[in-house]
Design a protein around this nucleic acid. Structure first.
Lengths: 228, 228
DNA sequence: CGACTTTGAGTCAAGGTGACTCTTAGCTAG
DNA sequence: CTAGCTAAGAGTCACCTTGACTCAAAGTCG
């Protein structure tokens, strides 16, 4: 029984995932999701938090952690019967990943590189990644987790870029602003401004208390092909 | 490692769940979700299908089966460490449940009775039931699974009653019809009619090919307190 | 100063929704 | 036969959200 982590962050305008290089067989040398065995007396949430801390030196308070689902194909691990529960983690541009204890190299990797097939993942981790990404995209529609990607304080434009990167298509800046600022308790204005290198200064916001985005911001599919 | 099933159906205008009476300690005599251990070489889905067949003599082709999540509190089972994965099953008014092999009595129970506290469930099954119900309610918003509750062919009114019973409040019949009949590939007219004991005859439909309801039918919260 | 970029306000038409009325088509009681 | 009941199903209307769009504001850079 293991827990695998799909840790997303946005770096350089791209969606990135934390992958480790496997030091042992099977799939030695291939990339894989960070994860590990559930210890006796540990809940799965605790396992996920512990693995997260070991891989990124972050405690879970700063980011969103959520169970995705269990994967149980008897042949998914050639060593034997291993059922794994996948967790989705979202966070702001995270500090450099820490090398794991068992000589594993951890690195941020653009999700596009993985899904376009230019990189092979161990086990069924490619399927897990796909499911977790879909979950993240749906979460952005109905909840306020997108703000968990943004280091506080943040601008509406930064928040919009999160949506664009995770969803994979561009959004109208004006309509997005209208939607977000009208949503109850999503954005809490600080009153401050940020002066970027280029463009008009932007108002700064903090995360509000709302956990759900009502009404939701649905991907209509109309502009879904406009890839960023 | 076990799988527990939350099997919902609609009987007599109420949402019902299949519960078994435990024949062994712990919680002997109390009600519990049907479920059982995962066998070697079995996926969780296969375990869920097998348990379903054992409890209801139904194969999974006729109903919707879906993983909810894993429950892993080390103290959730006094006998020791048991992690369980909950599955949600939705189906039309099912045949009488079959008594389990190990002298367990299976019975349909109104969900309201359980959630109002008039009945105690073993282990953390009350929590699992709550989570599964919330999942079912959300599924009704975005997918076409509600039709899985209805024996074919069915009327729009029957489909609406499913929504009302699962959501717990009344819907406007006219608006509901408009919404459902406009949704692409949700309802497939058979051309036939049903002549009820009272009221105007209703057109009959079959389940269409669509799996998602676009746009979704969201619980707005406006009329959410109108309990049926 | 003018070109450029991004923020942020505002406009407008199209479509969806909730509340509502009204007709249709069966039944049953008188 | 008719009045009254129930539920199906069509239609109306006001309101709101949304997508597409224009335009002004406020900074930087050449």
């Amino acid at each position: 029984m293991t827990v695998d982590l799909v840790i997303f962050t946005v770096r350089d305008g791209e969606l990135n995932i934390l992958l480790i290089e496997r030091g042992n067989e099977p799939f030695r040398g291939a990339s894989a999701l960070p994860g590990g065995y559930v210890r006796p007396g540990e809940t799965l949430d605790q396992t996920a938090l512990r693995e997260l801390r070991e891989e990124t030196s972050l405690d879970g308070r700063e980011l969103h952690l959520e169970q995705v689902r269990a994967y149980s194909d008897p042949d998914r691990d050639p060593r034997g019967r291993v059922i794994t529960v996948a967790y989705l983690a979202l966070g702001p541009d995270l500090p450099r990943p820490v090398a794991g204890t068992d000589a594993r190299q951890a690195a941020w990797t653009p999700v596009a590189e993985v899904l376009e097939g230019r990189m092979i993942l161990a086990f069924d981790h490619r399927t897990i990644l796909r499911d977790a990404l879909e979950r993240a995209r749906t979460q952005l529609e109905h909840t306020t987790v997108a703000a968990r990607f943004c280091p506080e304080p943040f601008t509406v434009g930064e928040l919009r870029r999160i949506y664009e990167v995770v969803w994979g298509f561009k959004l109208d800046p004006s309509n997005f602003r209208r939607k977000m600022t009208r949503a109850e308790a999503f954005l809490e204005p600080t009153g401050e401004q940020r002066f970027p290198e280029v463009g008009r200064p932007a108002a700064l916001y903090r995360r509000g208390s709302a956990r759900f985005l009502i009404p939701p911001l649905l991907r209509t599919g109309a502009s879904r092909d406009e890839v960023v």
